[in-house]
Design a binder for these strands. Structure first.
Lengths: 211, 211
DNA sequence: GAAATGTCGTGATTATTTTCACATATAATT
DNA sequence: AATTATATGTGAAAATAATCACGACATTTC
């Protein structure tokens, strides 16, 4: 379970590979080469082969990769056989977008419950997920190890503290706040304003074409 | 304008620095050290010093950095003196979240217009931004160089093609589709399902604490 | 069944990024 | 004024990641 040898950069690409293989499989494709994959997902073909090779020799020379086999392999590598249950905190626009996203289609990830402090929202079912009051969070969240944080900035720190107390292990943080957690809690940040500004910066300072 | 020497990894962190310096300045803080910054934004202090040093000697030994000076410096580096106008395509939950996000507060980025194909939404003002029909996009978008793409998967390719024809230079793509564009158009992907699945993978395979 | 073609897996190389660690300079203290 | 504490900027090293390029082998074609 903890064969910690795969580079982080590779690990980040695995879900991407997995989803595309799923697509191919649905389309009934039987084989695929690193070159084809490369064109579809915009990752250098040598990088793809290298990535796959960390898991052993999954392909066949002169043929490519067997889609079904590869898919099955990634399914178990990405623990897709067991469903990961997730909680979402903050049912605003962004939170609602997540609730309506069907993660279970490609990934065995399921948002099991959501929390909000707005009386209007409590008790509703959004995207098939029940919304509870924040005050119920501590009891209800037990057994869930991953949280998506889509609350306003002002709430971020307080909620994070509660999540940590409730034993959460991973947080996908969409607030601009760099939340503070014990070192055994993993936080991934997605900062929408930063991403947008970075794109603008790259546009002005890193001309493409010539490259 | 094109002193292409700053590492990409550094460039991606600039907006983060900028926002935090803004916060400090608002709080009336006069000085800050790389160590303080490091604790706040969770980036190694040596990395911060190195990042800053690409722009010259911005600090003072034994003192740290002058917040106002540094802020002013980044403001011009990040082109914050001029407003960047952006269009958003797809006013669903995710799109609406963006429209309600006040980018202008910290960043001189303004979503100037939005597009959707839903008759219900056309003509509305969401978060202060007018929503037009997709069919008006080609005319209206002229002069805008950045687009945020928050449409359903099925629309992604068609809309992208239109955006490219309309002369867009950068796309912040939230669809899982790896859109195809000419090489002089810059695309940044943010794939929510991939991010979530990557977090889950890291949790299971990259134990923290010990590290 | 021989020749041509295709594609993997990987050693070696190169590029990029992070981190260490310390000389150097400023600021604070006594 | 001397001493101590602080914090930068950066050379050098280490870590991480991407890419090249080719031998080996499977598949396809003739």
């Amino acid at each position: 379970m903890r064969q910690n040898k795969i580079p982080q950069a590779t690990a980040k690409r695995l879900p991407l590979y997995y989803r595309y293989l799923n697509n191919l499989n649905r389309q009934g494709k039987k084989r695929v080469s690193s070159k084809e994959l490369s064109e579809a997902i915009k990752v250098d073909s040598a990088t793809i082969r290298r990535d796959f090779s960390y898991f052993g020799a999954l392909g066949k020379k002169g043929y490519g990769y067997n889609v079904e086999y590869l898919l099955g392999f990634f399914r178990s590598t990405l623990d897709q056989h067991e469903t990961t249950e997730v909680a979402l905190i903050g049912v605003g626009n962004l939170g609602t977008a997540f609730l309506n996203y069907n993660f279970t289609k490609n990934n065995n990830i399921q948002i099991k419950m959501a929390f909000d402090s707005d009386e209007e929202k409590i008790g509703q079912i959004v995207g098939g997920v029940p919304v509870y009051g924040i005050d119920e969070m501590m009891e209800r969240i037990e057994g869930i190890s991953v949280a998506i944080l889509t609350v306003p900035v002002s709430e971020a720190d307080v909620i994070t503290e509660k999540l940590v107390k409730a034993g959460i292990e991973g947080i996908l943080n969409f607030t601009p706040v760099r939340i503070t957690v014990p070192e055994d809690v993993r936080v991934h940040h997605i900062d929408l304003a930063v991403e947008l500004q970075a794109l603008v910066y790259f546009l002005k300072h890193y001309p493409l074409q010539s490259k």
